[in-house]
Amino acid sequence: MAETAYDPKTLLPLTPAAFHIMLVLTDGENHGYAIMREVAENTQGKMRLGPGSLYGTIKRMLADGWIEEADERPDPQLDDERRRYYRLTSVGRKLVQAEAERLEQLVSIARGKKLLRTPRSV
């Protein structure tokens, strides 16, 4: 799908699954199981994606042009060659950044209402 010139903010908020998958992919391309494991690690096990929710979300993100399948396959001796690797598109990168900024704003509002402790200065 062609990348669009739309303001990413109009597509926010992202679903938690989409945001967490995209967060993992900001570090570089990765395959389904590794994405699933890293999402579980990043959320201390609070978000466990099953194969259905993982690939259902991946399917929609591929269709929307937020991620794409990486053409290069890893060395078959190092990894299973049947695995598919995914990476962020530039639209996806802008989107995940916009979502992170949105969440940061929410946190700062919560902090202003004394719902959170202010971060310690280093």
Binding site: G32, Y33, R37, G52, Y55, I58, R83, R84
Partner: peptide, 24 residues
């Protein structure tokens, strides 16, 4: 249980993820 088209695209991947999860 999934639609045929979805299975055609993701069945292999989903089984692989399930196998990895199982071993883990």
């Amino acid at each position: 249980a999934y639609p045929k088209k979805f299975r055609e695209h993701y069945e292999t991947q989903m089984v692989q993820v399930f196998r990895d999860s199982f071993c883990d």
